[in-house]
Amino acid sequence: MNAVLAIALNTYRETVRDRVLYAFVFFAFVLTLAGILLGSISVGQDLRILEDLGLATIAFIGGIIAIFVGTSLVYKEIERRTIYLIVTKPIARWQFIAGKYFGLALCVFVVTLAMGSFLLATVYVVSPGHIINSLLLESLVFIYLELIFITAVATFFSTFATPVMSVVFTLAFWLIGHMGQSLRQLGHLSASTTVAKFFDAIYWLVPDLSRLTTVRADLMYGRQPDAELLFYLVSYTAAYIILLLSFATVVAERREYQ
């Protein structure tokens, strides 16, 4: 476990010291502040717009960070040959993959926390009397859950594909994950059974992320989803993350480092 922690800490330090990260976070702050402007032109929905836009910004910017850092996570190690100093030490491949993943997940957590805190502070400044309920915080938790899933997808692709291809694959995975239900329905509207089966296969292959968005929307409208659904979503996402990291380990074990 020491090795996993050491690699995670290394990855976290390396990622968090990259100035590009701060540019993204700054952009997120500006977008959140834009919510005040948009809210002011609405009819009594200024806080709702600020919160909605703020959460969407966190999900979007967090996703960009997870994809762009995650997709080069392992590939960059091979390309820059830093991996020679890692895999020649007593570090099993699963420890290497897990360490890289947890390091980036920690970085994404810190970024989400920073952006979330900024959103809460902005809401407080705009309306000091407004009571921030736990549902907003729960929404943040679900955003983070989605972000660590994307990080796992990006980590998996980075073990064998170039960063550009990994970005394309991860974005495709993310988008299809959100549109899986719609694609399946679209397939069933077709007269061809082959088309229907094809979209069915995509639906079953790619994780269904639309439920996470639905739960977030419910939370924002003050509807608390039942505990069973929340447990299901957390377990579902965790299972996919473990599966993706296991595949990444298999790839890392099989490959040679020239």
Binding site: N2, L9, N10, R13, E14, R80, R81, L85
Partner: peptide, 23 residues
């Protein structure tokens, strides 16, 4: 390794600390 490459944002002491920990 020949012409070793390291993580550019880490310090020399941090890399040695990391190496020690994995051992």
């Amino acid at each position: 390794p020949e012409s070793p490459h390291f993580y550019s944002y880490l310090t020399g002491a941090e890399f040695l600390d990391f190496s020690g920990k994995v051992f």
